[in-house]
């Protein structure tokens, strides 16, 4: 009986955590150096390229295009030109004096339903439109929401230079 008690006492032991702690303390400073509390992403917005004179002489291939004008006074204006060259404009007025981004999304969805083959939009913001508002517009016209289908993923700027 006495022997049994001794064996029972021997089976409990204390884990030596000191080397484990040493490893964790070495790893934490390394991770602290590479930690990022702000997750940065990117949006592509290619600018028009300079083309050769030979290319300019070629007759342009008729294709549908969408230009989205952004004004802090008049709101948004979608100008859709179809393959035949017919122009259709849709205005989205300001809401309480600010740009109506919800109405922009609704209109973009409707235009996508009408012209499912168009995947690009040319932005034409006025000079006083802030970069934050441009990014909000890009977010609204690129996709319906974060996980759903794309609307106009290729967003470019129509008014660069002169």
């Amino acid at each position: 009986m006495r022997i049994h008690r001794t064996r029972s006492n021997d089976s409990t032991f204390e884990l030596n955590l000191a080397p484990f702690l040493d490893i964790i303390i070495s790893v934490i400073p390394l991770l602290l150096l590479s930690v990022a509390f702000i997750h940065v992403k990117m949006i592509a917005a290619p600018t028009p390229q300079v083309v050769s004179e030979d290319n300019l002489k070629k007759p342009p291939v008729p294709e549908a295009s969408i230009v989205l004008r952004i004004s802090k006074v008049n709101g948004f204006e979608f100008a859709v030109t179809d393959v035949k060259g017919k122009l259709m404009t849709t205005n989205i007025a300001l809401s309480n004096g600010i740009l109506n981004f919800d109405a922009l999304l609704t209109t973009a969805i409707k235009i996508k339903e009408t012209y499912p083959n168009i995947s690009s939009v040319q932005l034409s913001p006025n000079a006083d439109v802030s970069f934050d508002e441009i990014i909000k517009v890009m977010d609204r016209v690129r996709h319906k929401d974060k996980v759903s289908e794309l609307l106009f993923p290729d967003v470019t700027f129509a008014t660069i230079g002169g």
Partner: peptide, 15 residues
């Protein structure tokens, strides 16, 4: 930047 040959512009944003 376009005139210097940098056409492919990407904007950094916060997720």
């Amino acid at each position: 930047s376009m005139l210097a040959g940098y056409y492919d512009v990407k904007f950094a944003v916060v997720s």
